[in-house]
Design a protein around this nucleic acid. Structure first.
Lengths: 350, 350
DNA sequence: GCACATGAGGAGAGCGCTCTCCGAGTCTTT
DNA sequence: AAAGACTCGGAGAGCGCTCTCCTCATGTGC
C-alpha cells in the first residue's frame, strides 16, 4: 500500500528512511546531507530527491549527541540580586541595553544558523549547574553579559574550558575574551565637553560602583576633571533606572545649589535627571548642561534631546558573537579582547 | 603511549561511570537521578554519593534523543521585511516591546527550568525549516510574536502539531492558542477620554494596518468616535518608531490645523508626535491632548508624561508561557485564548 | 511446603545520527 | 601486465541516555 506514506503514525522520516527510498546506505545520505566530499554527483541528486520526497529533516539532537556540537550559543544574564518575583530582571529586560545586545548578537548568529538561548543564573548553585550543562554540550559557547559586581562565573567558565566571550570586562582580571567600551575615554569626553562649554560646578550621577563599566566611568570622569583642576566632584550613585536618576538629581540639587553641569552614567538616568531639573526650574542646557551615556533611544526621546556618549553596543555585541564563533571553531585561539572607542554625540542638552 | 589516557582527559563522566563507582547498573543510576519509584533508599544514597564523587551531569542531548523533550521553548520573531543588514530587526529588538515580552516569558520559564531560544524566521523557506526543526524536537513548543501582516506560520504550526502560543492574535482565524489585549477596548478608552475632556477635532496616528493589533486599535477608535458623532477621523499610519510618529504628526498638522486631540497607537510614536507638536508650537495638553498606547517606559520619559492605554505585556507573556507549558504537558489541551483588558493610565498629556 | 503476587535491580535494545574502518572498483605507475 | 594509489560507498560501532522486559529474591495465603 503506501510505500513511504503514512508509515508509523507521526514518526518523522529518518536517515534510514531516506536511504531506503534512495536505495543507498545511511552513510551516503549523511554524506550528501552534510555536503561531504566524495559523492558521485548522480547519487547526490538521487539522495536529494529522496530527501524532498520523504520530507526529511535531520534530527539535531541525534546529530549533536555524536558531533558534540549544538548550533546554539547561550546568552547568560546573571541575576544576583533579587530571587523570586524579580523586579530586577524585568527592569533589566525592559532596558534598551538588553534589546540592543540581542539585536547585535542575532545579526551575526543568524547568518551562521546558530540559535541563541537565554539563560539566567541566580545562585552559586545555578552557576555551577550552568557550567556543568555547558561542558556537557548544552551550548557550544556562551556570551556573558556584564555582571554586577564580582562574580565567579568568568573564572568557572575559563576553567571549565567553555568558549566564552563577555560583553563588558570582568570585574577581576580573568583570562577570558571580552568586548568592551573604553568607558574611561567616554567619561573623559563628557568631562571635557562640559568644561569646554564653560561649566564650573560639575557633578556626576553614576551607576552602582561595583559594576566595572560604571566604575570606569567614575574613575575616568574623576581623572579628567582633576586634570583640569577640579580635584573634587560630587557624585551620587543611581542604579541605571530613570527613577534613580531623578532621585540622584534631586539629591545633587539639594547638595550643590549652583550646579551648572552634570554627567550622567546612562541615558535612562539622564532622562530622569532632566525631569528633576525641570521640576526644580532649571533650564537645560542654559542653567545646567547634561551629558548622558549610551546614545540609546532614550537620548533622542528626552527633552531636550541628550548630548551623550555613544556606546556602539550593537556593534560590540556583533563582535562578541564573531569572537565566540571563532573561538568555537578554533579551540586554540588565544584570549583576546576588543575595546571600542566611544564618541560624543552632540544634541541639545549640553 | 597514552592510547586511552588522552581521550579520557576531557571525557565527562557518564551514567556508566557513576554506575561503576556506585557498583550498580546504569538503569539504577538513571532511576535515582530521575527520581523514579522503586529504589532501595540505601542504594539511593550510594548512587548520589557516586554522582557527587564523579561530578556527573546528565547529558541533555542524549536524554532528549530518547525522551523527545528538550526543555527548551523557542521564541519566534518573524522578519518578513528587510533581508540583509536589517534595520527592521535592530529596531525591533531595541523596542521595549521585545524586552518586556522576554522578561514576562522568563519569569515563568525560569521556574520550570525551561530555557528560551530565540529564532528569527525571514523567508518562507525559513518558516518551513523552522516547523521541520520544531517537529523534530528542536524545542518543545514555541511562542510566536505577533507577526506583521498575514503569515502562514500559525497555520503551519498547528498543522504540524507543534505546541504553540501566539502573543497577539493571528491575522487570520487559525485554531491556535493566543494571548491578546482587547485592543478595541483600549482604543475606545482613548477615544472616550479625549472626547470626555472636550476635544472636538481628534485624529489618530496608527501603526501599519496589516498588523492585527494595529488594525484593531484603528477599528476600535473609529467605532468609538463614530458612536459619539464623529463619523470621520483623520488617520495617518506610522510604523511604530519614534521618527514615524514625528512624521505622522507633522502630516496631520499640515492637514488639519485646528487639531485638539490625538490618539497614537503606541508610546514610542507618541513621543515622536510630542516632538512635532512642540516644534509646531502647540502646547500639550492645553492645545492638543495626546493619548498613547502601551504604557511603556517611553510614556514616563516623555515630556509631558503620556496619558496612555496600559498594555500588561509582561503579564500577557507570562500567561502565554504558562499556557504553552500546559499545552506541552497535555497534548489534548483544547485551544484556548486569553484576552486582557487594557486600562487607561492618566498622566499629563491628556 | 507450594503456587502466587510483589517489588527491586540488571540486561539490553534502541533513539537518529556520524564517522571510522574496509572492500571493491578504477586509474596510475613501472 | 602486475602492483600500487586512489575513489566511492557500505557496514557497523558507538554517542549517553531511557525504558521495557526479565530475573531473582522476598513476602503472602492455603
Amino acid at each position: 500500500m503506501c510505500y513511504k506514506g503514512r508509515m508509523q503514525r507521526d514518526r518523522l522520516p529518518t536517515l534510514e528512511d531516506v536511504a531506503r527510498v534512495a536505495g543507498v546506505s545511511r552513510a551516503t545520505v549523511s554524506r550528501v546531507v552534510n555536503g561531504i566530499r566524495n559523492v558521485d554527483p548522480q547519487l547526490h541528486e538521487v539522495v536529494w530527491d529522496a530527501v524532498g520526497k520523504t520530507g526529511y529533516v535531520p534530527n539535531r539532537m541525534a546529530r549533536s549527541l555524536v558531533t558534540r556540537r549544538t548550533g546554539t550559543v547561550a546568552l547568560v544574564v546573571s541575576d544576583s540580586e533579587s530571587h523570586d518575583d524579580d523586579p530586577f530582571m524585568s527592569r533589566f529586560f525592559a532596558d534598551p541595553y538588553f534589546g540592543r545586545v540581542v539585536g547585535g548578537l542575532m545579526s551575526v548568529l543568524r547568518q551562521s544558523g546558530v540559535q541563541l538561548a537565554l539563560q539566567i543564573v541566580g545562585s552559586d548553585d545555578g552557576r555551577k549547574r550552568l557550567v556543568g550543562d555547558l561542558r556537557n554540550g548544552q551550548a557550544d559557547g556562551v556570551i556573558v553579559l556584564s555582571l554586577p559586581a564580582v562574580d565567579a562565573l568568568p573564572g568557572m567558565l575559563t576553567e571549565g574550558g567553555v568558549p566564552a566571550v563577555m560583553i563588558g570586562r570582568p570585574a577581576e582580571p580573568v583570562p577570558i575574551n571580552y568586548v568592551d567600551l573604553a568607558n574611561e575615554s567616554g567619561a573623559t569626553l563628557a568631562a571635557e565637553h562640559l568644561l569646554g562649554r564653560g561649566c564650573q560646578r560639575v557633578a556626576m550621577i553614576s551607576g552602582p560602583a561595583d559594576v566595572p563599566a560604571s566604575h570606569d566611568r567614575i574613575s575616568g570622569f574623576r581623572r579628567a576633571m582633576a586634570k583640569h583642576g577640579h580635584g573634587w566632584v560630587p557624585i551620587v550613585a543611581g542604579n541605571f533606572t530613570q527613577e534613580s536618576g531623578e532621585d540622584a538629581m534631586r539629591t545633587l540639587l539639594s547638595q550643590t545649589s549652583d550646579l551648572d553641569g552634570v554627567f550622567v552614567a546612562n541615558d535612562v538616568m539622564a532622562a530622569g535627571a532632566l525631569l528633576a531639573l525641570r521640576d526644580a526650574g532649571r533650564r537645560v542646557p542654559e542653567d545646567v548642561a547634561v551629558v548622558g551615556f549610551d546614545d540609546s533611544s532614550a537620548a533622542v526621546t528626552a527633552q531636550p534631546a541628550l548630548t551623550t556618549v555613544r556606546h556602539p553596543l550593537e556593534d560590540m555585541a556583533a563582535e562578541a558573537a564573531r569572537l565566540l564563533l571563532a573561538r568555537i571553531e578554533d579551540a586554540e585561539m588565544r584570549v583576546s579582547s576588543v575595546i571600542y572607542e566611544p564618541t560624543l554625540v552632540l544634541r541639545k542638552s549640553a
